[in-house]
Design a protein around this nucleic acid. Structure first.
Length: 555
RNA sequence: UGGGUCGUCGCCAAGCGGUAAGGCACGGGGUUUUGAUCUCCGCAUACCAAGGUUCGAAUCCUUGCGACCCAGCCA
């Protein structure tokens, strides 16, 4: 792993590893792995796991592999594999080795033969439905399949023929022979191989039988010499099975499985099935829609790898099911962007302002710094002229209490420029304000006027010297904190989660914007150029997050 | 009602028998040509509950209560 500046914190997993190291377990080595199934795009929940696994490898001078858990070809494909590799790299991590569970299919097969030879696995002809019935319930023990005591020879023969493709899908299954009365349902002779004639994105049609997760994962870990196999809480009940398989087989090592609580983030969904549904049913515009909690979506929205890593560090790692408030993620991205984003001015909903006492045709290049606290980020030139545009919201015909922007007869500071005073409001026949007539105080460039205080500061652009842009404002995708708990999560989709503003005007310097740069449009939020739709000179900006809204500013 | 896991501030989370860290959020001052940033101050006599052990308990024991996960030939 490569990165870098994430603060080191303690958590129960790191404590376990520290203790293991002290006892010189695993010859003092630490090896982890991040094992996604390539059946969808990575999301913020995966980021937690990625940061944990790669982070631990980094801290303990160990290694972390990327391994695709590709044992169910029905849902997996190359596009997902590629997106996963891209996203892990983008987050700033480097894997020691890149593997696939399918790399081990041959070994997995021969281990299964060993299990059969030891009398610890058998081929069952019960149907899926029958197996379910035989399994018993949470409170009642299961009962043994009639095939459970098939001879080793017969099992070997049948398993060979399963592989050879002699049987129809579902005709047989290979089961571990453990204990049908176990209080742990996972130990009631779990299936470890099924017949499935599906083309696999890596092994093609070489196999018609595929190993199951529980059987595959532990052996894959052992083959790779993983020392600590970190997974989420729902696999706690599977640990006895993980250990059983490795205890029965002579694998190169016996990794330790450790479980932690998966991330639950308010107002978002982190179920791949549901995310997939949002994409395929077009509730969003693809896996990388900026409203999606996917890494690709967050990236397109303007999130930085650093902010995501910081977030993962802040939320901690425990075994407690918890819901993280969305404010934590927002804090992380604001913190990074406040420090590093270049400032610029953009007027989302323009109102024309004519400065009557400013010379016709004159254009002044004002030098404005790119960051108020970091002069090292330099300055840019912003053209000023007689006709400028300000935000409609920054003028109020009837100002609410404490309003400190422009009002009729009042003064306001144009950011980085002069103080202007509104002399007259021009309205259309319908009574809509179409233009403001103002005058400027030539003596207020770079200094405050004498004898009076001007409280408000607003942003602006020169009408003629600005560029047109489309600006997309995103809001949370769901209307309730935990959409996953709804009977139907589609019912709580926020239909106002995307607001597209056309005809916005941005300062001239933004015509050269690139998706890698992030900007703070002063007073309105953090934005970045959309990496997909900004083509042929068209400028499209995505709002990453608003500025923090102190006190009354909201509304 | 079987098995597994978890209960510390609104949300996260340290704490591991010696007298409740920190972050986010929130409230209030100050600075500010972004109602941003920055900065200062405040924010759990209290750790799910009740008993017990101890000089001393969030930490140990007991009994309750509450929450989550498991009955795919998914992962």
């Amino acid at each position: 792993m490569t990165t870098n500046d994430t603060p080191v914190s303690t958590n129960f997993i790191r404590q376990i590893i520290t203790q293991d190291l002290k006892e010189n377990k695993n010859q003092g080595k630490v090896a982890t792995r991040f094992p996604p199934e390539p059946n969808g795009y990575l999301h913020i929940g995966h980021a937690k796991s990625i940061c944990l696994n790669f982070g631990i490898a980094g801290e303990f001078k160990g290694t972390c592999n990327l391994r695709f858990d590709d044992t169910n070809p029905e849902k997996e494909n190359i596009e997902y594999m590629e997106s996963i590799e891209r996203d892990v790299k983008w987050l700033g991590f480097e894997w020691a080795g890149l593997y696939n569970a399918s790399d081990y299919f041959e070994q997995l097969y021969s281990y299964a033969v060993q299990l059969i030879e030891q009398g610890l696995a058998y081929v069952d002809s019960l149907s899926a439905e029958e197996i379910r019935v035989y399994r018993g319930t949470l409170t009642e023990p299961g009962k043994e399949s009639p095939d459970r005591n098939r001879s080793i020879e017969e099992n070997l023969d049948l398993f060979t023929r399963m592989r050879a493709g002699e049987f129809a899908d579902g005709a047989y299954v290979l089961r571990a022979k453990i204990d049908m009365a176990s209080p742990n349902i996972n130990m009631r002779d779990p299936a470890i191989y099924r017949i499935r004639r599906v083309h696999h994105h890596r092994t093609g049609d070489a196999w018609c039988i595929y190993p199951m997760y529980d059987y595959t994962h532990c052996i894959s870990d052992a083959i790779e010499g993983i020392t600590h196999s970190i997974c989420t809480l729902e696999f706690e009940d599977h640990r006895p099975l993980y250990d059983w398989v490795l205890d029965k087989l002579q694998t190169p090592s016996h990794p330790q499985q450790i479980e932690f609580a998966r991330l639950q983030l308010e107002y978002t969904i982190v179920s791949k099935r549901k995310l997939n549904q949002l994409v395929t049913e077009k509730h969003v515009n693809g896996w990388d829609d900026p409203r999606m909690p996917t890494i690709a979506g967050l990236r397109r929205a303007g999130f930085t790898p650093k902010a995501i890593r910081d977030f993962c560090e802040r939320i901690g790692v425990t075994k407690q099911n918890s819901w993280i408030e969305i404010g934590v993620l927002e804090y992380c991205i604001r913190e990074d962007l406040n420090e590093n984003a270049l400032r610029a001015m953009a007027v989302l909903q323009p109102l024309r302002v004519v400065i009557e006492n400013y010379p016709d045709g004159q254009v002044e290049q004002l030098e404005i710094s790119n960051h108020p606290q970091k002069p090292e980020l330099g300055k840019r030139q912003v053209p000023f002229s007689k006709v400028i545009l300000i935000e409609q919201d920054d003028f109020a015909a009837i100002p609410p209490p404490k309003y400190k922007r422009l009002i009729e007869g009042g003064e306001v500071r144009l950011r980085g420029s002069y103080v202007i005073k509104c002399n007259e409001i021009i309205k259309s026949a319908e009574g809509v304000i179409t233009e403001l007539r103002c005058s400027y105080d030539p003596d207020t460039l770079g200094k405050n006027p004498e004898g009076r205080k001007v409280k408000g500061v607003i942003h602006w652009v020169s009408e003629a010297e600005s560029a047109e842009a489309e600006i997309r404002l995103y809001d949370r995708l769901f209307t309730v904190p935990s959409p996953d708990n709804e009977p139907n999560f589609l019912d709580v989709i926020n239909h106002d989660s995307l607001e597209v503003l056309e005809g916005c005007r941005v300062e001239a310097s933004l015509a050269q914007a690139s998706p890698e740069n992030r900007y703070q449009f002063e007073r309105t939020g953090y934005f970045c150029l959309d990496s997909v739709d900004s083509v042929d000179g068209k400028l499209v900006f995505n709002r990453t997050v608003t500025l923090r809204e102190g006190g009354w500013a909201k509304d």
